[in-house]
Amino acid sequence: MIGSRRRTRSTVNVWPGYVDALSALLMLIIFMLLVYVVSQLYLSQTLSDRNSELARLNQRLSEISELLGLEQSKTRALEQEMASVQDAYSASLARLENTRERLMQQTANAEAQAERLQSMDQALGEKEELSDSQQNMILRLSNQIASLRAQLGQITAALRLQREMTAEKESELADVSRRLNTLLAERVNQLEQYQSEFFARLRNILASNENIRVVGDRFLLPSELLFASGSAELGEEGKRELDKLAKLLLDVAEKIPDDVDWILRIDGHTDLVPINTPKFPSNWELSTARAVAVVRYLAAQGVPERRMVAAGFGEFFPVAEGTSPEALQKNRRIELKLTDR
């Protein structure tokens, strides 16, 4: 009996269970593959739409840049025209004033001569008639006075017309000034837009490093992150952080129009502990050399040199007061700021 029971258990067929399990596993794998393929198709379509939208935005930015360039050309032409008109107007006014003064002097002389003749005429009051020469002289003087007064009237009318023309030109100049102010405001708004984008993206990139601080619109990198103590040679960790900065800056710079005059300021700061070595006689040299080292490294990564400026401030602009190790560490820093020239 015991032997028959063993034979019965051994003859049980377990393969159908294995086949069902393998079928279920195969169906699950096929389902996961379908989900993966569909998600890849959706992601590809989304990326394609995004690239198309970016292409349209870049084209629109190019058109706006061209329009701004045309407006600037027109503005410069108007400024040159206004300058020439103002010069001509000033020269014309000077000539008219000189002519008017000469005519007034001539008129005064003629009137003085007429008064003298009148006094002579009164002195000869006892005579019934003047001599022919006196009468001719009085006639000539009267004609001269009339001519001078006519010329003075013409000059006065010309001055009035010139003032009216000047008022029109001043109105045009005011309009040009308003347009220039509008363009300037647009440039400022554009730069602020790219400053905000640069600031936000750089903050996200450097957020993993707790030593990097943000103060206002500036990024403060501790000197220990970039340089060894008393040195202006970049370390490997500092180069890695600057690589992130260079990549981001090049990406943002491609979007900024060429006529927006922006720069990246790199400021070097030290603590108040003095240094005196053959290479760095004071903190001025050390802070400046560190700022220049950052500029040179970014330039080697492709950042345009004309878009960067390096400055050394020594120990004279601390961000933390006192002589504690924490205050000294905060004051040893490199500051980065995207701004206008």
Rank of each mutant, 00 (worst) to 15 (best):
A150V: 08
D175H: 00
Q162A: 14
L173W: 01
I256E: 04
R149H: 15
A320P: 04
A24D: 13
Q329D: 03
Q144C: 01
M308D: 01
R240P: 00
E97S: 11
G230K: 09
L117I: 03
L47H: 07
G238Q: 01
R100T: 05
R50K: 09
L234M: 03
R160H: 13
Q106K: 07
S4T: 08
N13D: 15
Q122M: 12
T107P: 02
D121M: 02
G216L: 05
M165P: 00
G322R: 04
S208V: 02
G125P: 00
R100A: 09
Q144P: 00
L161W: 09
D121C: 00
L338F: 11
T270C: 10
E224R: 05
T339M: 07
V294Y: 06
L96M: 15
L117A: 10
L298K: 01
E101N: 13
V309R: 11
A311H: 09
L96P: 06
L249I: 02
Y297S: 05
E81N: 11
F317K: 12
E81C: 13
P222R: 06
E224I: 00
P274G: 04
R100L: 13
L130P: 07
A83N: 14
G235K: 05
L148E: 04
E210T: 03
N276H: 11
E164Y: 13
A123S: 08
L202W: 00
F227N: 03
E66L: 13
E335R: 00
R100V: 05
L22H: 12
A123W: 03
N283D: 06
A200K: 10
A327I: 10
L338P: 01
K74M: 09
A24V: 12
S231R: 13
